[in-house]
Each structure stands twice: as structure tokens, then as C-alpha cells.
Design a protein around this nucleic acid. Structure first.
Length: 230
DNA sequence: GCGACAG
DNA sequence: ATCTTGTCGC
């Protein structure tokens, strides 16, 4: 796909610099709107190999609304940064961007495992990626990074706001009964309510919406016969 | 000062 | 994230 190859900033930086960049980039995030003319949705997930030395990014492109997989890319490169809570994007985005550069198709919406603006400085990995791609993105987290919330009702579809410093930064959503809820947040160019609806629309019989579930399936499976490219 | 802490 | 066996349930 054609994306902006303009370098926003360096990825290998010290923690203080990374935090400064987050403060600088966060104001550019657009927290409203909805994706238009959606024909394809992409799911992104990152995994590691060689005890963390290699980062593996997976992108699955699905047709909407059939949710059929139309393309998938697996891209590996050397890991540059350690995992630091709050600085996840600096560790995982270089590989994700490398994968997007190899993707032939173009999604109108991207779902990322991790937070969007539900982040201490409002720039989680989904928001950061959205800024880079200049595409609508949604953060689909499996656990909480920051913020507080009321217990979520048991039924599928039940939700409660995730609030941090008096600000609603996301929605805790029960995507299946008897399963831990997901933390949905705006990544970029989409409103929270729309983000939640898109996630609901991509649910089948599992906890995760199809785009991230399929990417997850490929990203965290054994190191086996998975080679680069599709 | 003491916890909490996406993947 | 990753390492890992069996086990419970539709």
C-alpha cells in the first residue's frame, strides 16, 4: 500500500526523549469521526522470537463485511528497544511499519492490539500508528494500562467507560460472556462510540474482533514454517 | 515513598 | 510478549 514514508522521528531513543515525543505528537490525534468507504480492515499484531531478539509483525487484511482474509504479511526485523510500560510503540512500531510497507492493499480502518489514547500521555501504540499511517485506527487492549472503571455487566455487549484524570479515554467492553472484557479506545480519526461499534461488528464467536484475532493467531503461533511475506 | 504497569 | 500439560466444556 502507499503510505507516508516521511520519518516522523527516530524510533531508537532514550525514555526521556520518547516521552517528549509523545507529548509533542498526542495533540495531533483526532478523536472523532468515522472511517469512510470501508472495503478492507486490517488487523495488526506483534510477536517475538529468539528470546526477544527478533520482532515479528503480522498484518491481516480482511474484506468488509465478509471478513474474508484477502492478504497477510509477516515481517521480521531486529528488536531495538526493551519493553517499558507506556513506551510500547517505540518497541513495536518499527516492525509494524515495515510490514505495512510490504502490504499491497490499503485498509480504511486498522485495529491494533494495545491502547489508543487510553495511555498516560494519550499516545498508545494504536494512536501512534494511526498518526504515522494517517488512517483511522482502533486500540484493542486485553488488559488495562491506566484509568479506572466500574465493573462490566456480564452480558455480551455490556460496556462501561474507562476514565483517567476525569477524562473518558476508552470503553471497557464485554465481547463474550464469562470472558475478561476488552479495553477499546480511539486510535486516530475515529470517535469512541464508532470504535466500539466497529469492534462489535467484527465479532464472531471469539473474544477478539476478527482482524486482531487473525493477526494474533499468526503472530503468536510457533516459530515453525512461518517465513516472511504472505 | 509505595504500588501499578498495553505487549 | 513468551515458556508450558492437562483439563473442563460446548
Amino acid at each position: 500500500m502507499s503510505i507516508n514514508f516521511r520519518e516522523l522521528h527516530d524510533w531508537t531513543v532514550d525514555p526521556e526523549t520518547a516521552i517528549g515525543l509523545q507529548h509533542q505528537l498526542a495533540p495531533n490525534i483526532i478523536r472523532e469521526g468515522e472511517p469512510e468507504h470501508v472495503e478492507h480492515i486490517a488487523g495488526v499484531d506483534i510477536g517475538f522470537e529468539d528470546e526477544g531478539a527478533t520482532t515479528r509483525a503480522v498484518i491481516v487484511l480482511m474484506h468488509w463485511p465478509s471478513l474474508e482474509i484477502v492478504e497477510q504479511v509477516i515481517h521480521r526485523e531486529a528488536t531495538r528497544m526493551p519493553y517499558v510500560p507506556g513506551l510500547l510503540s517505540f518497541r513495536e512500531l518499527p516492525a509494524a511499519i515495515g510490514a505495512f510497507k510490504r502490504l499491497e492493499g490499503t485498509p480504511q480502518l486498522v485495529m491494533v492490539d494495545g491502547m489508543g489514547i487510553a495511555h498516560p500521555r494519550r499516545l498508545g501504540i494504536a494512536a501512534h500508528l494511526g498518526l504515522w499511517l494517517e488512517l483511522p485506527t482502533i486500540g484493542v487492549g486485553k488488559s488495562r494500562l491506566c484509568g479506572r472503571h466500574e465493573p462490566v455487566a456480564e452480558e455480551k455487549g455490556a460496556r462501561t467507560p474507562l476514565v483517567d484524570r476525569s477524562e473518558t479515554i476508552g470503553m471497557v467492553l464485554r465481547t463474550r460472556e464469562r470472558v475478561k472484557p476488552l479495553y477499546i479506545s480511539t486510535g486516530h480519526r475515529i470517535g469512541l462510540d464508532n470504535a466500539v461499534e466497529w469492534v462489535m461488528c467484527c465479532l464472531t464467536r471469539y473474544k477478539l474482533p476478527e482482524p486482531t484475532r487473525q493477526a494474533d493467531r499468526l503472530a503468536s503461533r510457533r516459530t515453525r514454517a512461518l517465513r516472511n511475506d504472505s
